[in-house]
């Protein structure tokens, strides 16, 4: 670290910016490599530098990617969107309802539920994968959409956050006023409390989306039919073949770029939104 003390300031502004620049390069260069590499044919990897563009083969790569195994890549993208998108929307609503109920109502067993939820935060996925597989085969739902979708809805940490958000952003007086006006509790939740909790719920939604998009263990264990794979599992499977079949290399690289792009764009666009949520969760 290269800052010294003098006149109560960080002395060397350039040094501070150099550190930030190094951190930014470290973070971004692998992605730059992904972009340049997806323009290359297999042969170009040995003839061109890592961060320069090859002969422009991007469209050829993309075409080959979507042609491979009868366009299975479409299935993978669609599956990822369904698992992560559907799971995040439904899952965050379930979290919001439960967090609100724990914070603002007094049903019996509420403390027990909250204690179990906190325990659930700490249970490693490794512990759950094997029994989940065995239970799913017992129910004969291994290798189905639901076997992966339903477990990923469970987000104990989301409930914990939703409870914090409900406490912080829904004043008791507002609920009292809604009650006096004759609104039932369910209606109060959906029309009064949920809109007030919105920034928090959006944060839970975003992070659950990322969590599901990242989840690898569960689909790996529960799915064998490539048509049901999310995109990361599919690309992983292709990558395990690349030592024997180098022609998979451009496919995996181009596929990775297409899988990453929407997420990075979503993050940049929703920048303000998730920041607000983070602030509500950790500073308020």
């Amino acid at each position: 670290m290269s800052f010294a003390d003098s006149k109560s300031r960080w002395v060397s502004t350039p040094a501070v910016h150099v550190i930030l620049l190094v951190a930014a390069l470290y973070s971004l260069l692998p992605l730059v490599w992904l972009v340049t590499s997806s323009t290359k044919s297999l042969g170009d990897f040995s003839t061109t530098g890592a961060f320069e563009f090859g002969e422009w083969n991007l469209w050829a790569n993309v075409k080959a990617l979507f042609a491979q195994e009868n366009g299975i890549f479409w299935h993978w993208l669609l599956n990822s969107v369904l698992y992560a998108g559907g799971g995040a929307v439904l899952g965050s609503l379930i979290c919001a309802a439960c967090g609100y109920a724990i914070a603002k109502t007094s049903f019996p067993g509420r403390r027990l539920l909250f204690a179990l939820t906190l325990t659930g935060v700490l249970v490693p996925t490794t512990v759950l994968a094997l029994p989940m597989y065995l239970l799913a085969s017992e129910l004969r739902i291994v290798d189905t959409f639901w076997a992966v979708f339903v477990p990923l809805l469970t987000n104990p940490f989301g409930v914990y956050l939703a409870r914090v958000y409900a406490d912080a952003s829904v004043p008791d007086e507002v609920l009292e006023a809604a009650r006096v006006d004759g609104a039932g509790q369910l209606r109060t939740f959906f029309t009064v409390a949920l809109p007030m909790m919105r920034p928090g719920v959006v944060t839970v939604l975003l992070f659950q989306f990322i969590g599901i998009w990242n989840n690898f263990f569960l689909p790996l264990v529960l799915l064998t039919d490539p048509k049901l794979f999310p995109v990361s599992l599919g690309l992983f499977q292709w990558s395990t073949r690349q030592t024997q079949f180098p022609q998979y290399t451009p496919l995996v690289i181009t596929g990775s770029l297409l899988a990453v792009l929407p997420l990075v764009v979503a993050f940049l666009v929703l920048n303000r939104q998730w920041r607000k949520g983070l602030a509500a969760g950790s500073v308020k």
Partner: peptide, 13 residues
């Protein structure tokens, strides 16, 4: 930004 990259894909890169 790397946080937005799925772990499998970060690993592959």
């Amino acid at each position: 930004v790397p946080y937005a990259v799925p772990v499998v894909i970060g690993g592959l890169i």
